[in-house]
């Protein structure tokens, strides 16, 4: 099981019928999954991005590249609804044609934060289970998550090599292990959209390949859209469908190119 992820080639042909997960599965999308119109992000008195127009179809792996301070994290924050854009709008489309603002789409957005955002003195397992807080009411989760969820979280953690760390606190494990915990939380959430901010910054080449392989597979096999900030051009070439590069000097100098 552990090696399967690694063998997944970046270009997996799309299966006709996707395994049945929620409302994501098995419909032909005419509409793009996500449309960004005329987006402008302004922070600290300067424009980071302006006039950004994107239509991303479902199941696309978009790598976001650019030097530090270019606004990659701010862009992801905008997509997550955590940051209000200065102008323009972000819109998500569901299969039935309805449209959502990022804030209404929260439950279906899995985020891997740059600094992980794990609860430090909570167990690895609880941190991963938190991925599904949006699915249940606060009363349901008041005394813990369903047992089936725990088993599922365990199998994801096991695949990422964290099976032994289930009951360790997040502070007690290394940076790379924390990052994998954060990734496990996003995977466990089973979102329609992944927003990953440098998800492999603390991982070695082997684990980087494996994690991005998993995200690639989520995109190809389960038609989940992935936005992933990456610094390594090799990884962009290996895993991404498209690369969005942001220029720190020119807010309107963004460029979306196909990766071949």
């Amino acid at each position: 099981m552990l090696t399967i992820w690694n063998k997944v080639t970046p270009r997996v042909p799309l299966p006709e019928r996707v395994d049945g997960i929620g409302d994501v599965a098995g419909t032909v999308d005419e509409k793009p999954h996500l449309s960004i119109r005329n987006l402008g992000i302004r922070r600290g008195g300067r424009w980071l991005v302006r006039n950004l127009n994107l239509e991303i179809p479902r199941g696309e792996f978009v790598a976001v590249v650019g030097p530090s301070g270019a606004g990659k994290t701010s862009l992801l924050a905008c997509l997550a609804g955590m940051l209000e854009p200065a102008e323009g709008e972000v819109e998500y489309h569901c299969n039935k044609g309805c449209r959502h603002r990022p804030l209404d789409f929260r439950r279906r957005t899995g985020i891997i934060f740059q600094n992980f955002m794990l609860t430090p003195n909570n167990t690895v397992l609880s941190n991963v289970l938190c991925g599904r807080v949006g699915r249940y009411s606060c009363l349901r989760t008041l005394f813990g998550f369903p047992y089936s969820d725990k088993r599922e979280a365990f199998s994801i953690l096991n695949d990422l090599g964290l099976g032994d760390y289930l009951y360790r606190w997040a502070v007690e494990i290394s940076g790379g292990e924390q990052q994998r915990t954060a990734i496990a939380r996003a995977l466990f959430q089973e979102p329609e959209l992944f927003l990953a901010d440098e998800p492999v910054s603390n991982l070695d080449a082997y684990l980087s390949g494996r994690v991005l392989g998993i995200l690639r597979q989520e995109a190809s096999l389960r038609r989940r859209t992935v936005f992933c900030v990456l610094h390594n051009p090799d990884l962009v070439d290996r895993f991404a469908d498209k690369a969005l590069s942001i220029d720190p000097g020119k807010p309107e100098g963004w460029r979306l190119r196909d990766v071949h």
């Binding site: 929260r106 439950r107 957005t109 985020i111 934060f113 955002m117 938190c130 991925g131 949006g134």
Partner: peptide, 9 residues
């Protein structure tokens, strides 16, 4: 806040 961003009440 980050939990709120993934749908927590």
């Amino acid at each position: 806040k980050s939990l709120r961003a993934i749908g927590a009440d």
